[in-house]
């Protein structure tokens, strides 16, 4: 059961990882209702950064200082961040965009399972495969401890790709190589 209200928030996080940190912090602040969904959203207008959205049980009375936030008609904080927060709310509500960090069944999509099990165990509606056709329910999948489905046209969609040995793995890697990585 999805909670009734969506809060959007932004502290200007430059990266997905920083935005995920903000999501954790806000769920602690506002509480995390059963079936809560928390997403990151890429904001490309003005200063590009990553905003978040999360489902909550009630419209917050206030939000942490310095944060831009939006919920229903209310706005908090700096106007540019509040507008980014409102974008996150619109994408989440319309299920048009947003990358889910928290979603029902996320804790069950870990390790090795089948594509069919991914769909029945979680709120993920669909698994798509990069560079390939749609997977079958029996196709093997390894979550590799990091699953971030995204809203696409109303469906929570997990992008997967070959991970070798006929096993699909999530497109998104938990710790991608940073720019100018120190390889040595």
């Amino acid at each position: 059961m999805t909670a009734p209200f969506i809060v959007g928030a932004s502290d200007g996080s430059p990266t997905l990882a920083a935005a995920e940190h903000l999501l954790h912090r806000l769920f602690e602040e506002f509480g995390r209702p059963a079936g809560a969904i928390g997403c990151t959203h890429l904001v490309r207008l003005g200063r590009s950064h990553v905003a978040v959205s999360l489902t909550v049980a009630a419209v917050p009375e206030e939000v942490p200082a310095g944060l831009g936030a939006a919920c229903e008609e209310r706005r908090w904080g700096p106007s540019d961040l509040a507008e980014a927060a409102a974008q996150a709310v619109r994408e989440h509500a319309g299920r048009s965009a947003g990358r889910a960090v928290f979603f029902p069944g996320a804790d069950r999509v870990t390790g090795a399972l089948s594509v069919g099990e991914v769909l029945t165990a979680s709120a993920i509606d669909e698994v798509v495969v990069l560079g390939g056709g749609p997977p079958g329910p029996a196709d093997r999948f390894d979550a590799r401890g990091h699953v971030r489905p995204e809203w696409r046209s109303g469906r929570l969609t997990l992008a997967a790709m070959p991970g070798g040995g006929d096993v699909l793995v999530p497109f998104e890697v938990a710790d991608p190589t940073p720019c100018c990585a120190d390889h040595a």
Binding site: L16, V43, G131, V173, P176
Partner: peptide
């Protein structure tokens, strides 16, 4: 080392496929 994902600075039109090699 093509293991990245879209970021706020990436071009919105690029599909996820663009982040991997072929």
């Amino acid at each position: 080392l093509y293991d990245n994902s879209p970021s706020a600075d990436s071009f919105a039109g690029y599909p996820l496929e663009s982040y991997r090699t072929y």
